[in-house]
Each structure stands twice: as structure tokens, then as C-alpha cells.
């Protein structure tokens, strides 16, 4: 409507903006001086930025293994999903540490055959959950009552010893966690996420739920990217630290804004879906056909589960 150039170009204000820069008063206000000692931003927001960045990097790199053409990558994802779930469930029934160790070694062999570097795989599995579980399991060595097998020290007249039951239960606990996590990570590392989600339909997960899971996965990265940009934008124009209370207020505001933004994005996504003919019932198609290799794999896995069960594993 207005044919004239924007006001800034021809008004007196344009000249003002060329005037020598004078810092605003608040730069020198005592408020910013006072809170200099607070390391709130570095501590919390720095952790947030690093956390989001490393999460995204790890996920992207992990997906590279899904297309690297090893043994597990070549299998029908539906067969793989059912077999791995069955393995994880049978691991939960095992009652002897030796059998769990066998399953764990098996996952290492599978990883090697699937061209996943073993050091990467071991680090990825053990980092956090099994190491954390091992720390939890340590006191169980002496706390679980039972037959003493190694005397440690005497405390206020009580003998503190590692018990046979304590040793067994700690080993069972840590090896069970490690084997289950290894199986779960092996499955996610060697399968594209789209295929993994579609395969859920073979175990009768309703298609609407599969659609919701897919949308969730896709938009986690979109929303995280926005959060990261917000933090980076703020970091780039931060010249002084704030108090922890102000920092909390800002973070909560961003989290609240994320919810608003996510809900609005949801509206937009729905409109885009509706305009393409979505009525509420998703339709999936699968490009996979099971081959002889898949059947062999399922039979081998079933044989392993039966072997463990027969040789005193489950009882």
C-alpha cells in the first residue's frame, strides 16, 4: 500500500543511527555488577546447550550404522524386532550369571558381524546404565544376607563379609542389565528408525500409535533445534551473568514457550496432513519381504533361547 521506502531510510532517525555508539545506561548499572559472581548461566544453560548438541550428534551418527550393510542390517526389521524382544524377555528369566555372560558375549559377536566397532559398542552400552547399576550393586555384595565367603573387616563387633548370595545377586544384576541394554542398543543401531517403528505393527501395536511415535521422533529434533537456537542467540548477546533466580525464570519461560510452540506446530502439522487427505486412520506399507536368511536367524535365536532354558537357565 505504502509506495514510499521504509521510514528508516528517509527519516531523521537514519542519521541518528550513524552517530557514534554510546553504551546504554543499563550496561553500567549496579544490577549487572552485583551478579557477576553467579555462574548460573555457565552451569545450567551451558549444560543444556552441550546436552542437546551431543544428543543430536550421537543420534545422527548412530543412524550411520543402520546402513553399513552387516549381518543384522540385512535382516527383515520385523523378524529382527520380534527376535530381539523375545531375547530381551528371555534374558529376564535367566537365573545363572554364566548364562547371562553367554548372552552378553553373543551380543558382542553379533555387533562384530554387523560391522559395529566393538570399542564403540561397548562404550555405548556400558556408559551410564550398566556402570550406574554396577555402582548400585556393590553394596549388595555385603548387604545381601547369606553364606560368608570372604571376610572384609570387623565393624563394632560385627563381621563384614562378602556373601555367596551377595556376589551372585550382584553378578546377576549387572550382567542382566548389560545383556538387555546390549540387545536393545544392537537393535536400534542396526535398524533405521522408520523401519523399526513400522515393524511395531507386527506385534499388534495400533497403527495410530505407530503414527504418533513416528511424529514424536521426527519433531523431537525440530523442536530441539529451535531450543538450541534460542540458547545460542541468547548466549551471543549475553554480556553479564544473571542471578540464579532470574536465570530460572528465563529458562522456565523458554520451556513454557516450547510447549506453546509445540502445540502450534501440532496444529500446523494436522492441517498439512488434513490437506493431503488424512482422516485419522494412517495407512502403512512395507517394502520388506522375509528371505531365507531371516528364517535362519529366527531359528538360530529360538535355538539359543531353548538351549539356555533347557540347561537350567529359567527353571
Amino acid at each position: 500500500m505504502n509506495q514510499n521506502p521504509p521510514a528508516a531510510f528517509n527519516s531523521a532517525k537514519a542519521n541518528e543511527s550513524l552517530a557514534p555508539f554510546t553504551p546504554p545506561d543499563w550496561w553500567a548499572s549496579p544490577d549487572t555488577e552485583k551478579v557477576k559472581s553467579s555462574r548460573a548461566f555457565d552451569r545450567a544453560s551451558g549444560k543444556t546447550i552441550r546436552g542437546i548438541a551431543s544428543f543430536m550428534k550421537e543420534t545422527v551418527f548412530a543412524q550411520n550404522h543402520a546402513v553399513s550393510g552387516g549381518l543384522l542390517q540385512s535382516l527383515d526389521p520385523r523378524m529382527k524386532l520380534v527376535t530381539f524382544f523375545a531375547m530381551i524377555v528371555s534374558v529376564s528369566f535367566i537365573k545363572h550369571p554364566a548364562h547371562l555372560l553367554f548372552v552378553y558375549v553373543l551380543t558382542l559377536a553379533l555387533a562384530a558381524m554387523s560391522r559395529i566397532p566393538i570399542p564403540f559398542f561397548v562404550k555405548r552400552v556400558w556408559f551410564f546404565i550398566p556402570i550406574f547399576s554396577a555402582v548400585i550393586a556393590l553394596p549388595a555384595l555385603i548387604l545381601v544376607p547369606g553364606k560368608p565367603i570372604a571376610h572384609l573387616f570387623t565393624l563394632a563387633g560385627h563381621d563384614i563379609s562378602i556373601t555367596s548370595q551377595g556376589l551372585d545377586s550382584s553378578l546377576l544384576f549387572v550382567l542382566r542389565v548389560a545383556s538387555s541394554v546390549s540387545l536393545a542398543i544392537l537393535l536400534t543401531l542396526t535398524t533405521k528408525w522408520t523401519q523399526l517403528l513400522q515393524s511395531l505393527r507386527t506385534i499388534r501395536v495400533p497403527s495410530i500409535f505407530v503414527l504418533i511415535l513416528g511424529l514424536t521422533y521426527r519433531y523431537i529434533f525440530h523442536i530441539l533445534d529451535q531450543v538450541l537456537e534460542t540458547y545460542e542467540a541468547r548466549l551471543s548477546r549475553t554480556i553479564s551473568r544473571q542471578s540464579a533466580a532470574k536465570e530460572r525464570g528465563w529458562i522456565a519461560g523458554r520451556a513454557g514457550h516450547t510447549l506453546i510452540h509445540a502445540m502450534k506446530t501440532g496444529d500446523g502439522v494436522y492441517e498439512a496432513m488434513a490437506s493431503r487427505g488424512f482422516t485419522g486412520d494412517p495407512v502403512f506399507y512395507s517394502e520388506h519381504v522375509s528371505g531365507i536368511g531371516d528364517i535362519l536367524f529366527v531359528f538360530t535365536a529360538a535355538a539359543v533361547i531353548i538351549l539356555i532354558a533347557v540347561f537350567g537357565g529359567f527353571v
Binding site: 545450567a44 495410530i208 511415535l213 502445540m263
Partner: peptide, 21 residues
């Protein structure tokens, strides 16, 4: 429901990334 629940799920995932002092 599908996109709305998905976006609420995204929020409940993302909120755990916001570290607070």
C-alpha cells in the same frame, strides 16, 4: 489427536533437556 499427542510427547521429552540452576 495424532499430531497433538505427538507434540505433547515431544514437549515431555524436550523439557528434560532444560537444565535449571
Amino acid at each position: 489427536q495424532a499430531p497433538m499427542i505427538a507434540m505433547a510427547a515431544v514437549f515431555s521429552f524436550v523439557i528434560m533437556m532444560f537444565n535449571v540452576p
